[in-house]
Amino acid sequence: MPVTPPNRCRIVLIAPPVEDAAAFEQQLRAAISGGDIASIILPAYGLDEASFQAFAERIVPVAQSANIAAIIAEDTRIAGRVGADGLHLEAGRAALEEAIERFQGRLTVGAGGAKTRDDALDLGEARPDYIFFGRFGYDNKPEPHNRNLALGRWWAEMIEIPCIVMAGSDIASVSIVAETGCEFVALSSAIFGEGVDPEQAVAHANAILDDTAPRFGE
């Protein structure tokens, strides 16, 4: 992996719903072997607290050992217990502001759930570390959702806070996302889907981004 992160849109992994944590750990290790990854977000997908914590305890150190930021969705207590690098919140502005007041500076605090420009601006006024356009588990079509692309393009042009835009199930869709000017492209099924080799998929995504993504500051 490069010592200096590339000066273009980077990959954020979204963990899929997982039945076998050990198997997912091996998938993640394979993905890490494929090249540059900025971070991974771990949603609970309805797991009970003990099961989600056990999953996070297994996955967070694997990510961190590869200099990948591990971000826990929604659960501040588990984020603290497992020593995560960040929190991802979709519970609205009040919860976001509370988390920022409590944790920002110690943890990355990101915001999701915005479906309109007004939603996004409202969350942005709380000054999260990033904003996410997309929904976990809904990257089941080859192309990114047009609304997420439009929001990402508008946000990247207007707002300094970094944004993440969800790609589709086709790894080639990272190019479409990068064209918006967003800082990060989120990938889940394109990396961890059935029959996919995570190492090859991450390598392919990075190669596409190297060839097509705009360079920041140029």
Rank of each mutant, 00 (worst) to 15 (best):
Asp129Trp: 04
Ile71Thr: 08
Thr116Arg: 06
Ala201Glu: 06
Leu187Cys: 12
Ala44Glu: 04
Glu157Pro: 02
Leu187Ser: 11
Asp36Val: 15
Pro16Ile: 12
Glu19Asn: 15
Ala69Cys: 04
Ala31Pro: 07
Cys9His: 01
Ser175Gly: 11
Glu98Thr: 09
Val3Leu: 10
Phe133Arg: 12
Arg153Phe: 10
Ala63Val: 05
Ala178Tyr: 10
Asp129Asn: 11
Glu218Phe: 08
Pro198Lys: 07
Ala114Asn: 02
Asn67Gly: 01
Ile176Val: 13
Asp75His: 09
Ile161Asn: 03
Glu143Asp: 13
Asn7Ile: 11
Leu123Val: 10
Pro5Glu: 01
Gly134Lys: 14
Ser39Met: 04
Glu218Met: 11
Thr4Gln: 07
Gly195Val: 04
Gly110Tyr: 01
Glu157Val: 10
Gly112Trp: 04
Ala30Gln: 14
Val202His: 01
Ile100Asn: 00
Gly83Gln: 09
Arg117Ser: 04
Ser33Ile: 14
Pro43Gln: 05
Arg153His: 09
Arg58Tyr: 00
Ala190His: 06
Gly110Met: 04
Glu218Cys: 10
Pro6Gly: 02
Pro61Leu: 07
Gly86Leu: 00
Ala178His: 08
Pro17Phe: 10
Glu74Gly: 03
Asp122Ser: 14
Arg77Glu: 06
Phe192Gly: 07
Ile32Asn: 04
Ala22Lys: 13
Gln26Met: 14
Asp75Asn: 15
Ala120Asp: 06
Ala203Thr: 11
Ala21Trp: 07
Ala207Ile: 05
Glu97Phe: 00
Ala54Ile: 01
Val109Gly: 01
Arg58Gln: 03
Ala30Glu: 10
Ala201Asn: 04
Ala186Lys: 10
Ala186Met: 15
Asp211Leu: 14
Glu101Ser: 14
Gly34His: 03
Arg102Asn: 02
Val82Ala: 05
Lys141Trp: 03
Ala79Ile: 12
Glu25Ser: 15
Val12Glu: 04
Ala94Asn: 12
Tyr130His: 13
Ser188Gly: 06
Gly80Asn: 11
Pro16Phe: 11
Ile72Pro: 00
Ala23Cys: 09
Arg147Asn: 11
Cys9Val: 08
Glu125Leu: 13
Leu149Gln: 09
Cys163Val: 03
Asp85Met: 09
Glu101Gly: 08
Pro6Val: 02
Ser51Tyr: 02
Glu194Ala: 13
Phe55Arg: 05
Ala190Trp: 01
Phe132His: 07
His145Phe: 11
Pro198Asp: 04
Ile191Glu: 05
Gly34Glu: 00
Ala30His: 12
Ala91Met: 06
Ile40Gly: 00
Asp197Tyr: 10
Ala186Asp: 12
Pro6Asn: 02
Ile14Glu: 09
Val62Ser: 02
Val165Asp: 08
Ile32Pro: 02
Glu97Gly: 03
Ala38Arg: 12
Ile72Val: 12
Leu149Met: 14
Leu28Cys: 08
Val174Glu: 09
Pro144Glu: 13
Gly137His: 10
Asp119Lys: 14
Pro5Val: 00
Phe192Trp: 15
Tyr130Ala: 11
Gln200Val: 02
Ala114Cys: 04
Thr76Leu: 11
Phe184Glu: 00
Phe192Arg: 15
Thr116Leu: 05
Gly105Val: 09
Val62Pro: 00
Arg93Thr: 10
Phe103Thr: 00
Tyr138Val: 06
Ile131Trp: 03
Asp197Val: 01
Gln200Ser: 07
Gly46Glu: 07
Glu143Pro: 08
Asp139Trp: 02
Leu89Ala: 05
Arg81Lys: 14
Gly34Lys: 00
Gly35Ile: 14
Ser173Glu: 15
Ser175Asn: 13
Cys9Arg: 03
Arg153Cys: 08
